[in-house]
């Protein structure tokens, strides 16, 4: 490894990777913080478990109440939170880089609403939650296709995409609201996570799909980041550099949509995680790149902290995770809008 200005050159057999020094430092700090948050999340909760027993309990075979709470109640929810947060963080960073606009995250573009509506629709049609996952993925993908088709104008028109996305998103949320009103009150309150997003009803079986999606799509995203960072030029320059602009954009949109749909399928449309992660990661590392790995780290941290707060702040009442991510995200949205308004960007 050698230094080159602000970069580290990481040699590979027959090649080399470039990494910014500052990004490497930020990444290491995020890793440490995430591990601390992971530990704290397992430790904190209505049922007290002493801190020095957390790690031993993972490996002992005692099978007591402590272990049951830790491994069967807390761990699935926390692990799903980690993968969902990471997926949403990366998905948001991809969309924002593609559209060259910090407002363009999948929660703003209506893809999360589409996934949530798809999930809710399967429950409504089949009377059970058996097809929720596929309903959410199909809802997210179909919404994305619809938005892309409606905004296609001799290629992918990014400004139209944002406008159409916001419109479709609100329409689908209204549809979801309508479906909820048709359910009886008990079912409706069970289904409330499809409106706000929550890790509250997560189960053990939910871990595998989000874990697989996180690893596979995350790896794909990190490979595609090289192109994503070059698409941040306008399309003429990117095409002039020999990139197949439309093909790469569609591929990246597909990856980002499946990321967000998988996350929503399990946790509902948790708001603002996709929206805040990329910008925070880029601010911290001061990089012009889309910084997908760092965005995943921020997404994980935001989700873990929000969900831990949702579980523990009011002991008798478990609040949806989305309430706390919104508490973090909404002020940022207001700040961003105020700043863009000041610069006459909107």
């Amino acid at each position: 490894m050698k230094l080159l200005g602000h970069h580290l050159v990481v040699p590979l057999p027959g090649g080399a990777l470039l990494m910014r020094k500052r990004s490497a430092v930020v990444g290491a700090v995020l890793l440490v913080l995430s591990l601390v948050a992971l530990f704290a999340a397992h430790w904190l909760g209505a049922y007290p478990i002493s801190a020095n027993r957390i790690v031993p309990l993972f490996f002992s075979g005692e099978g007591g109440v402590d272990q049951l709470i830790l491994l069967d109640v807390r761990m699935p929810r926390i692990l799903v939170g980690v993968f969902v947060g990471g997926l949403m963080g990366m998905s948001g960073a991809i969309f924002q880089a593609l559209m060259r606009n910090p407002l363009a995250s999948p929660d703003v573009l209506g893809f999360n609403a589409g996934a949530a509506f798809g999930a809710l629709l399967t429950i409504f049609l089949f009377g059970s939650a058996a097809y929720v996952f596929w309903g959410a993925v199909a809802g997210g993908v179909l919404t994305a296709l619809l938005v892309v088709a409606l905004s296609w104008h001799r290629g992918l028109d990014l400004f139209r995409l944002i406008m159409v996305g916001i419109g479709i998103g609100f329409t689908l949320l209204a549809c979801a609201d309508f479906l909820m009103s048709q359910l009886d009150i008990q079912r409706a309150s069970d289904m409330a996570k499809w409106l706000v997003g929550s890790l509250g009803q997560v189960q053990r079986e939910d871990i595998a799909p989000v874990a697989i999606a996180f690893v596979v799509l995350g790896a794909l995203g990190v490979v595609l980041q090289y192109f994503l960072d070059r698409l941040a030029f306008d399309e003429d320059l990117a095409a002039g550099l020999g990139l197949k602009v439309n093909g790469l954009r569609l591929l990246l949109v597909a990856v980002a949509v499946v990321m967000t749909a998988t996350a929503v399928a399990v946790a509902g449309p948790i708001p603002f995680v996709a929206f805040v992660s990329g910008p925070i990661a880029r601010q911290l590392s001061r990089t012009p790149s889309s910084a997908l790995i760092l965005a995943a780290g921020i997404g994980i941290l935001v989700t873990l902290l929000s969900d831990t707060a949702a579980r523990t702040l009011v002991a008798a009442f478990q609040m949806p995770t989305g309430v706390f991510t919104a508490l973090i995200g909404a002020p940022y949205l207001i700040w961003l809008l105020a700043r863009q308004a000041k610069r006459n960007l909107i």
């Binding site: 060259r100 003429d236 020999g242 012009p288």
Partner: peptide
């Protein structure tokens, strides 16, 4: 297109740079 890009460079009228 990658091969073309090794032979021919184009600077458009108002190129946009990535932020930062």
């Amino acid at each position: 297109t990658r091969g073309v890009a090794k032979r021919l460079g184009i600077l458009p009228q108002m190129p946009v740079a990535p932020e930062g």
